[in-house]
Computed example of a mutant assay.
Amino acid sequence: MAVLQDEMVRQGGLLFHWRSFIPLMLAPVALAAIWEFGVFDFWFGEAGEEAWVLFCFFLAVAGQTIRVHIVGHVPPGTSGRNTRLQRADELNTSGFYSICRHPLYLANFIVFAGILLAVQVWWFVLVGVLAFWVYYERIMAAEEAFLHQRFGQAFEDWAKATPAFIPVVSRWRSPERTLSWKTILRREPYGYFAIIAVFFVMEVMSDLVVEGDSLEQWLHTDFIWPTLFAVGAIVFVVLRTLKKTTRLFSITSPENDS
């Protein structure tokens, strides 16, 4: 058993370095699945399909909002979106970390679930969930091995009382730190835009490519998606430019951002 656990930790360490890119491996699978898009249109009509896609979009946004809340309360010196090495100057045990040990990955799963469900293809949802499980289970094992080495008994006590992934809401303790909007705007400027971009591309593929709608017809009937994409792109570019060219979002403690 120890050998298997060590192998999972080793694999998790490797996946940690590539965690920003490996999910893109599902892109070809998504392109194959998109050709089966339209289950809700078949059963419930165009209005039913639009309602389902919007539900999935807001589910993904909810997951990103949870992530933003977590990031806004974490202490400086944590890994965040860093992919080069594990970092943790403090052991987070309050806020969402009081109800599960890996709340950021739980938030990521909610975002991922919204995207998977929006495609409306059962086997794509299954493949995506299995890929997420195999992928993140190993990363979580590697992170916990690092935290155990870093914090010892304090980590063991917290880990024994706190579930790994499925949250226990009754254990909630308010975050010990106040919400830092500078940290959020510095570390999470593209989360919402990424969701908007993915749904925008899915709508383009399903309506213009698969269903064969004209661009004029699509812009008239589904104007919400190009509008959201345009607004999201502008906000994203402004925030990234401010981050790269000004000290508006700078914080006093050093932090590794990517």
Rank of each mutant, 00 (worst) to 15 (best):
V3G: 03
L4V: 12
E7H: 12
V9W: 01
G12T: 06
G12R: 05
H17G: 10
W18Q: 09
R19P: 11
L26K: 02
A32V: 14
A33H: 11
I34K: 00
G38F: 05
A47S: 15
E49Q: 15
C56W: 10
G63E: 07
R67C: 08
V68Y: 01
V74I: 14
S79F: 06
R81H: 12
N82D: 13
T83A: 15
Q86E: 09
A88K: 15
L106C: 03
F112D: 02
G114P: 00
G114T: 02
L116Y: 08
F132N: 00
W133T: 12
V134G: 04
I139M: 04
A142P: 08
F151G: 03
F151S: 04
E156H: 08
A159Q: 10
K160D: 13
A164H: 08
F165L: 11
P167E: 07
V168C: 09
V169S: 09
W172K: 07
R187C: 07
E188D: 09
G191I: 01
V209D: 03
E211G: 01
T221A: 08
L228I: 04
V235K: 06
V238Y: 12
V238D: 11
L239Y: 04
R240A: 04
T241E: 03
K243H: 12
S250T: 06
I251H: 05
E255G: 11
